[in-house]
Design a protein around this nucleic acid. Sequence first.
DNA 1: GCCTTTGTTGGAAGCGCTTCCAATTCACGA
DNA 2: TCGTGAATTGGAAGCGCTTCCAACAAAGGC
Lengths: 347, 347
Amino acid sequence: MTARRPTIDDVARLSGVARTTVSRVLNDGPNVRDEVRARVMEAVKALDYKVNPQARSLAGGGSRLLGLVFASDLESEPNSFYHSALELGALRGCLELGYQLVTRHIPLQSADRQQQVYDLIAIQRCEGLIFTPPYSDDAPLIAEVLRRGCKVVSISPGGAGRGLADGVGMDDEAGGYDIARRLIELGHRRFAFMGGIEGHLSADRRLDGLMRALQEAGLGQADLIQVRGDFTFRSGVELTPRLLDDPLHPTALVCANDDMAAGALSVVHGRGVKVPQDLSVTGFDDTPVSAIVWPPLTTVHQPLKDMGRRAVALLASRLTGGRSEAEPEFDCLDHAVVERGTAASAP
Amino acid sequence: MTARRPTIDDVARLSGVARTTVSRVLNDGPNVRDEVRARVMEAVKALDYKVNPQARSLAGGGSRLLGLVFASDLESEPNSFYHSALELGALRGCLELGYQLVTRHIPLQSADRQQQVYDLIAIQRCEGLIFTPPYSDDAPLIAEVLRRGCKVVSISPGGAGRGLADGVGMDDEAGGYDIARRLIELGHRRFAFMGGIEGHLSADRRLDGLMRALQEAGLGQADLIQVRGDFTFRSGVELTPRLLDDPLHPTALVCANDDMAAGALSVVHGRGVKVPQDLSVTGFDDTPVSAIVWPPLTTVHQPLKDMGRRAVALLASRLTGGRSEAEPEFDCLDHAVVERGTAASAP
DNA sequence: GCCTTTGTTGGAAGCGCTTCCAATTCACGA
DNA sequence: TCGTGAATTGGAAGCGCTTCCAACAAAGGC
């Protein structure tokens, strides 16, 4: 009934090596024989040992400070759940791994935005930075930050961000595919898609997935009408009539995010169309709004909290693990279709 | 250009005392002359010294683990922004103060819910617990937790929770008053109030505030029509027609939370009533939904993140500070009316 | 005036970990 | 066979803090 958690010395004792060696194994250090490494790992497992992040960071030196960079401005402000969820995940990761976090909102329109990022490194002494879109695709910025010796993780990088630094995100194409598959299973054959602003790669890939599902079902361009919104509730409101009045008479409306779906829903209600009996509507992201509207929105869950946490983990592995010079890696997290009340059998 | 942060030894040296004494001052310990205490504090200020939470928690022993308890069940699930924001704030606090956090969702309907809370203390070894509503008003539970030597902070305690343990929240009465004042300033004289479920003290106090503002303006019961919803979007949808069709013809609709206001908005749109020209609508809480609807919702900001952080700070001061046996204290945080687009001059 | 009590301060031992550096082993080529 | 360098391992010194315990001063009690 001893409550004390095992320490590194317990592991060292059990595996018959010095504390130093255990530390090396734990940090993926070099110069440890495989046999010894295995023995240590075994002891770790046997004791259910977990490193004490506090002790590690005390001893490890360095600032142990990470930065989370948002491009908040009036346009992205509404999305504050996005920010909160990412930060929440990042904080959880930091607490687990013994890092500190500073969250910084740097408006895109500020002229010295690069400098503000560099200050995070030079003045605050951040050892790693997490960039959210659109910073996650700012190749010159990322390159310069890396050049200054600061590690980088991009959240949902589109084109430029990939390959330059580590990244975290979900498979948007598969998300679009999955939700479309589900609707096809429910008997839908005529679709409408409400996309996002041009150039937003994430949303475009969602459409790609939808198209793939349609093709697999023997459907094509003729069975789909699409429009582009700007991710806001308002654009959902404005664009929905065009979709409803189209001669195609879609029975399923797939939206590239939840906010637009919510806008669509409000218009549909106003017209007396029953959801989901007459029309199925789906969102994307699984933000709180999806649970708030009526009927609650069937959507695709994007694991924002996990993304934040994974971003920190990637940074940590660059900073202490053996990955410090490894090839950039993209960590693709699982998504899931969340069935609520807006998708049902085609009328 | 030395980057190193000052340590406790720097403070000790500058103030000419031993490290031990500085530590005592920093932790509100007893047995330090006022003169010495002042000298140390001066040095702290001069050096801009901040304790290193990692080191403190390493040396301090104890689990340094806090628990955040939610009563998530199907009914409160939609409110997940509430959870996220509180946890986010709590995590920020933990990072600052060197604590760990476990977040636990314990359904109200689970028969062994008390046991699950006690396990948090006995098995996980939490040193402090943060209770959210309705746990924050569960007096027997709180009393038992305290009896077991675990500190408690209640979030938004209503009746029973106050006085038993420390609490954090906002002044709901003042919030209701402020939003009503604003509407009165805008010339409104006929009001509708959409409240929450019976017994939800927080929402009731918001109504109290509204009434006070009305009375101050020479208005009374006759100028107000009220209904009770259940905080969901759906109840907003269902109740709004009753309000609009009332012979009072209110020009301002005050809702006890944002979700119901969003529901009201969608009904109002459907009827062709213009917001805010024909009708002003206000929410409460300033959750993301308020920025997502159209027009964006004028609402009262509830500082959820700060509440989470303050809760941790209170716990910390109980655990290490001199407050370990002090009288319970209620920490009332500032709220603010957030003017967006749904409140304008009365027609 | 001496002894105990109370209040105040400092010394020193860690908390659990990383890391510098020295020690040891091993595999080679000379 | 011996020397050399590389690979592997261990010893020990802290990281910045709390806390136990001893030391000392001031204040009462006889």
